[in-house]
Nucleic acid binder design. Structure first.
Length: 882
RNA sequence: GCGGGCGUGGUGGAAUGGUAGACACACAGGACUUAAAAUCCUGAGGGGGUAUCCCCGUGCGGGUUCGAGUCCCGCCGCCCGCACCA
């Protein structure tokens, strides 16, 4: 080894230096008029909670590797960052700390921006915005008004969870055991008139569009498919048996199993069904039944085991296919009003819920689907309904038909009949997807730009009066909607008739804000929501990266928004995200003290004694229980602060660790050993580069071109070129853990090449040696540049390379060096490996046979006989079958 | 209940149907050192032989194949999503 003493790499000095230089040179600022091929990488933007966490580091590092790689590949790369800045936490913080929500939010943004910059992300910060910026929500209000005009918005009554203490609407997730998560007050169901985006009009399109999204994880596509929940069936009218109860002539049900109509034994209505409500007016017991149902309804999740309960209405309907027979009408707690028609017919033999209900109320169970192998004389339904395939029986004109044919026959049958001058049965497609209620009775959100006038109704705010700005002089300690409380804000005159009128005081769901921010990044200063030319040039996002927790809502809303923005002329694309990647979480061990308190990792020392791991509380010396590995969370205290990691090890070490080992879609476990290992590797590269520089200084003579082909060092060059090719493939496939392994292999190889021993043996071939080393080290630095960008710049500069490695093009792998001239072919006997032969690439069959049969192991096993069969997969494997 | 995914050394994980365990972490031994840290070298799936050989081995049981971690069938376990959707 050359005696060249070098200090350890110091990220605390080097990292800020390069960050400053990138910023000064505007290395990552992107221009819309750049003629090169475009590539748009986006990570889900963060909520400005105040501090970044390791999940952010992982997410943004992955995106950054891709962005830096694509830039090296000569693409014009858009890699922006912004803030999903509206929402409840700011209001809660405002109340707790007596700070305006706005101030709290912008202070958090400033803090987090600083943290993100310290990670060395190659972001175009000139495009940054927050959704709470007046300009952003101004554009969003324009979008809303365009949607309103295009018929994409509607206003209707809807049930909401109402917290009577905080005086606000709660999301379902904010209701725990029927109580508000913050105030603890029992939640009430209220009917409010709310604004809705008509996403359900796009159910079919959103469903069909999933088929084309082959850059998405299958899991997410399935989740969206289930969420949209398409089902095809029949809407069917049952005639009420003449009853004193006037007005209601029939009951309409929706069924996906019209083939089982002969097995019907009751009708069930939702307690929320209009007929049920009317019946309750004359039936006290029913009224009590419905009231009880409503009380249970708020106690949400517990109804998974709720019993199937019903109340007989006293009414009957005519059986539509069994002449002279009637079916009883029940009000039942398991029928949902907001799916189908809020009414069903029950066929207990072939539906588990209906069966449980029938058993409870002594209703008939008539099997009408016969499993293919079953005997009709003995087939019976006991505890479980039969929902499998078979043929229809006990069913008059349907007898003998398979299920699907029977469905069609029933549809035809009822389609031809009329009740009330309507066809009795109509084929219908139903979706579970509901319209998207966007009204929130909150202050810290985008105001809905509408004015309510007693005479003119709801009047859109005229474009010239936009933006509708949030008032800043609001009390910070009063619960409820500050816009509603504000003394003057809501009092305006009607833009149409000039009479006194009121502003809409609801603001928009924050999911609206995040449904189009990716489009705004393409022209963040445009006077309109988008600059369509820019948006259409950049979109769809080539690679979107974020957590799987947004698999449904955010991603579905964004897909809807793209379509709505297309309809209103703001975009031309329908699918906003071409590629989607959902990364895993960052986890950590949990620690608990004797008294059950959670302990933070820095409060605990873990020792390994042989096989066992023991933990001890630093402060008290008491033993600590090492618990399960969980997602990092404040409540379990198993968090590691990115700032501290960056301060101790540097950003590159944190980035490298986040990319190593675990496949990016899986959870990664944060460990002290892991981060230490990453840090060591960083130093190892620094040392390798400096060792190499020492070698170059020993042999300063120019390298003759002929030396480059020296056989002695061709192997090392192959390792280099293979790494170049494989790392590129792995980054493009987002297999960062494999790219990392390739880089380790290359580093190990180069360390041998730079070693004293190798140097001793290469005196005659010094030129070849040095050129192989030079090439290897330069390539290595380029390969690590997307992952450890600061270290890469430091090495690049130490090697005397011109310019920044951030600006260097991705190296080309020489195809000739990716192929070996010989290959080691394993030889199997009856599928078991017994030896190997070295063969030239593409060796002719005769040569392979000769080599294989002359193997000692083979001739021993053959014992003079000829093999039964010789399977030769060229250049891969040989199998001798005896 | 329905849908999806996963199961490989002490650990994280590699492996177009073709040498299972790449690469890393942890561990053990050695070198250097007064010592430690750092660094470097070596070892290692399990068992036997201890020579370079043999047997077993990817949750379990079958199957397809010259050949299965990989494909098919049936189980077991874990994780995630949805959940009275007619």
């Amino acid at each position: 080894m050359t005696a060249r003493s070098v200090e350890r790499y110091n990220p605390r000095v080097e990292e800020p230096r390069w960050q400053k230089l990138w910023e000064e040179r505007q290395s990552f600022v992107v221009r819309n008029d750049d003629p090169r091929e475009r590539y748009y990488v986006l990570e889900m933007f963060p909520y400005p909670s105040g501090r970044i966490h390791m999940g952010h580091v992982r997410n943004y590092t992955m995106g950054d590797v891709l962005a830096r790689y694509m830039r090296a590949r000569g693409k014009n790369v858009l890699h922006p960052m912004g803030w999903d800045a509206f929402g409840l936490p700011a209001e809660n913080a405002a109340m707790q700390n007596k700070v305006p929500a706005r101030d709290w939010t912008y202070a958090n943004i400033a803090a987090m921006r600083k943290q993100l910059k310290a990670i060395g992300l190659s972001i175009d910060w000139t495009r940054e915005f927050a959704t709470c910026d007046v300009d952003y929500y101004h554009q969003q209000q324009k979008l809303f008004l365009d949607f309103l005009e295009a018929g994409l918005v509607t206003r209707k009554k809807s049930k909401v969870n109402w917290d009577p203490v905080d005086m606000t609407v709660l999301a379902n997730e904010q209701v725990i055991d029927g109580r508000a998560w913050r105030s603890g007050a029992p939640v009430e169901q209220r009917e409010l008139t709310q604004w809705f985006l008509r996403i359900s009009d796009y159910s079919e399109e959103l469903l069909a569009g999933l088929d084309g999204l082959d850059g998405w994880p299958e899991k997410v596509r399935i989740m969206q498919r289930n969420w949209i929940g398409k089902s095809e069936g029949l809407r069917l009218l049952f005639e009420l048996v003449a009853d004193a109860y006037a007005g209601q002539q029939n009951i309409e049900v929706f069924t996906t199993r019209p083939d089982t109509i002969f097995g019907a034994s009751f009708i069930a209505l939702s307690p929320d069904h209009p007929l049920a409500e009317r019946l309750a007016a004359r039936d006290e017991e029913l009224a009590e039944f419905i009231a009880e149902f409503r009380r249970q309804g708020t106690a949400t999740e517990t109804l998974e085991k709720a019993e199937k309960l019903g109340h007989f209405s006293g009414l009957h309907v005519k059986h539509p296919v069994r002449d002279g027979e009637v079916l009883p009408v029940y009000i039942a707690n398991f029928v949902l009003m907001d799916y189908g028609t809020g009414a069903i017919f029950g066929c207990p033999a072939h539906d588990q819920r209906d069966l449980e209900f029938a058993r409870r109320y002594g209703l008939p169970v008539i099997p009408v689907v016969l499993p293919d192998s079953a005997d009709p004389r003995h087939f019976e339904i006991a505890g479980e309904a039969y929902t499998g395939p078979g043929s229809i029986y006990h069913s008059g004109f349907l007898d003998g038909l398979p299920i699907e044919a029977a469905k069609r026959a029933v549809a035809t049958h009822f389609g031809a009949r009329t009740v009330d001058n309507r066809p009795q049965g109509v084929v219908e497609v139903n979706y579970r997807l509901r319209d998207w209620g966007i009204s929130r009775q909150r202050y810290w959100g985008c105001p809905i730009p509408v004015i309510h006038c007693e005479v003119c109704g709801t009047v859109p705010v005229p474009q010239k009066d936009l933006p509708v700005k949030l008032p800043e002089d609001i009390p910070v300690d009063k619960p409820g909607n500050a816009l509603d409380h504000h003394p003057t804000w809501k009092h305006v005159v009607c833009p149409q008739c000039s009479r006194a009128a009121q502003r809409e005081t609801d603001t928009m769901d924050t999911f609206v804000d995040s449904s189009w921010y990716f489009a705004r990044f393409t022209a963040p200063d445009a006077e309109t929501p988008t600059d369509p030319a820019a948006a259409n040039a950049w979109l769809p996002v080539d690679q979107y990266i974020g957590g799987v927790e947004h698999a449904i809502l955010h991603l579905l809303y964004s897909r809807f928004f793209a379509r709505a923005m297309k309809k209103t002329g703001h975009l031309a694309v329908e699918e906003p995200f071409k590629g989607l990647f959902t990364q895993g979480m960052v986890t950590h061990e949990t620690y608990r003290a004797r008294n059950g308190d959670w302990l933070a990792p820095e409060e605990v020392v873990v020792e390994t004694v042989g096989e066992a791991r023991r933990a001890r509380h630093v402060a008290t010396g008491h033993p600590v229980a090492v618990g399960s590995i969980e997602k990092m969370s404040k409540s379990r205290k198993n968090v590691v602060d990115p700032d501290e990691i960056v301060a101790t090890y540097g950003a590159d070490t944190a980035r490298w660790f986040m990319l190593s080992d675990s496949p990016p879609e899986r959870d990664v476990q944060w460990t002290e050993a892991g981060i230490e290992g990453a840090s060591r590797f960083l130093q190892r590269i620094w040392k390798l580069v400096n060792d190499a520089i020492g070698v170059f200084e020993q042999f300063p003579a120019p390298i003759p071109a002929a030396a480059l082909v020296d056989e002695a060092f061709a192997e090392y060059r192959k390792v280099t070129h293979r790494a170049v090719a494989r790392v590129a493939e792995d980054i493009e496939g987002l297999r960062f853990n494999r790219a990392v392994a390739q880089i380790y292999e290359l580093t190990n190889s180069l360390a041998r090449l730079a070693s004293e021993e190798t140097l001793q043996t290469s005196v005659s071939g010094a030129g070849a040696h040095i050129s192989a080393l030079r090439e290897g080290v330069e390539r290595l630095i380029q390969l690590i540049a997307p992952m450890m960008p600061h270290l890469a710049e430091s090495c690049w500069s130490a090697l005397g390379m011109k310019g920044l490695v951030a600006d260097a093009p991705w190296p080309e792998a020489d195809p000739a060096l990716l192929i070996d001239s010989t290959v080691v072919v394993p030889v199997q006997i009856n599928g078991k490996r017994r030896g190997e032969v070295v063969l030239p690439i593409g060796a002719p069959r005769e040569l392979v046979e000769k080599e294989v049969l002359s193997l000692e192991a083979v001739s021993r096993m053959l014992a003079g006989n000829a093999p039964k069969k010789l399977i030769i997969v060229p250049d891969r494997i040989v199998n001798v079958v005896i």
